[in-house]
């Protein structure tokens, strides 16, 4: 019985490379294009701008992770839709899409909210921070990200962006003073893998490693 070959010994792939991330990203771009064409629509009898499906469009401007965006979006667009489908910021995850699981948590003007229940129109003029906006550079993780790595605060990782963003909000709010308080004030973020022990330890470490204004400076 021979050992399987080391991956480094495998022959180079031939043909066009298709990665999961690239494929999904391409799909998202196609979706955004569809949304974009719908948004470039006409006006109804009352002079309201409408898209192909009959929905009104709303002009919004937002600052997301320090970058200003101006868009005309269908009024039904949530901040989560906008991030993922239009801006290609897919770090923020779609979980339940009904405000029950916390996977979509972002900071709006420094406060954690569920982006799936937040219309982009409601957030017009707001400053949004997502998981992509936390690290200060390549290899320079936000202390909360580093603590999640250190303490295995995840297993499959799907809830992790929401957990980390929510944890930053939790510390900033001053609700990370004890393990019991962290558990109560992180209850809006579900982890089906049950990594709560590591998550709690990570938050305690990040809380202690930085003062709350630093952790919340995102």
């Amino acid at each position: 019985m021979s050992n399987p070959p080391d991956k480094r010994d495998l022959p180079e792939k031939t043909g066009p490379e298709v990665t999961r991330r690239g494929f999904l990203s391409g799909t998202a771009t196609a979706g955004a294009a569809a949304l974009g064409s719908a948004a470039a629509a006409t006006r109804d009898a009352l002079g309201q701008k409408v898209d192909a499906a009959g929905g009104e469009t709303v002009d919004i401007s937002l600052v997301i992770n320090g970058t200003a965006y101006e868009r005309s979006v269908d009024a039904r667009t949530t901040v989560l839709d906008l991030l993922r489908e239009e801006l290609d910021l897919t770090g923020t995850k779609v979980g339940c899409n009904h405000g029950q699981c916390g996977a979509c948590t972002v900071l709006m003007n420094g406060t954690r909210v569920n982006s799936c229940l937040l219309l982009a129109a409601m957030a017009d003029g707001a400053r949004i921070t997502t998981i992509e906006g936390l690290a200060s550079g390549i290899g320079e993780l936000h202390p909360m990200q580093a603590a999640f790595l250190e303490h295995d605060g995840f297993q499959c990782g799907y809830c992790t962006p929401g957990q980390i963003v929510s944890a930053i909000g939790c510390v900033k709010e001053g609700h990370a003073t004890s393990e019991a308080e962290i558990r109560e004030y992180m209850s809006g973020n579900l982890c089906r893998c049950g990594a709560y022990k590591g998550i709690t330890e990570a938050i305690i470490e990040a809380r202690d490693a930085t003062n709350s204004s630093d952790v919340g400076g995102a």
Binding site: T105, V113, N114, G169, S187, G188
Partner: peptide, 9 residues
């Protein structure tokens, strides 16, 4: 009631 994220808005 609710979760911190919900109570914030």
């Amino acid at each position: 009631a609710a979760s911190p994220q919900l109570r914030n808005i």
